[in-house]
Amino acid sequence: MATETHDHAHDHRPPPDEDGPLTYYQTMEIAVRELLIEKEVFGADDVRAAIETMDARSPARGAEVVAHAWTDPAFKEALMADGSAACASMGIELGPLRLIAVENTETVHNVIVCTLCSCYPRNLLGIPPDWYKAKAYRARVVREPRAVLREFGTEIPGDVAVRVHDSTADMRYIVVPRRPAGTEGWERERLAALVTRDCMIGVTVPKTP
């Protein structure tokens, strides 16, 4: 069907050979960047710094936040009350974005999406995976979340509710997964290693050690 033909044939191609001829949009990017630098909207160093900042963001930051919440009830309470402020207290600035943490429990499993585009808690998880931005996930996860989760190898019991949260430009979600049994007494770092990107999107759950 039409929704199958979209992003995936294009988005998964390997990075273009930098020696090959520029595509139209690559040419456009260079031209726009040069013009903006000449007009002093920003400097060339700002572009480099922004790329380095983005490169430094990875799901490890989100995992630190989750592990902190697992081990510190006061922090967890703060995170659930105001995600942006709680992250700021750990030195992770989200700017004007409102971050909402949603917690998986015995009775509720959460999963996040941006049906309209690709809004994502980038400060905590980095750039979203291709499938998060592609149509199949965006279209289906709000309609048949259990079937989508099954494709990711995640079976949610029938008596557990599945809640899907649709992000916006100004409001981003992160899933706080359930702490696996058998991790009592673990240090934060060891716990953080269990928390993957996909757990914080909600399409998987942390593996029991």
Binding site: M1, T3, E4, H8, D11, H12, R13, P14, P15, P16, E18, Q26, E29, I30, V32, R33, L36, V41, F42, D46, V47, A50, I51, T53, M54, D55, V113, T115, L116, I127, P129, D130, W131, A134, K135, A136, Y137, R138, A139, R140, V142, R143, V148, E151, F152, D166
Partner: peptide, 30 residues
Amino acid sequence: IGGLPGGRIERAEHAHALWEMRVDALMVLL
């Protein structure tokens, strides 16, 4: 497209090319 039918989720991921990172940076700066 939220709620529309869709196909199987293609889970392969590609590494971002430098020019894609520059577009991302452009948006962050603007």
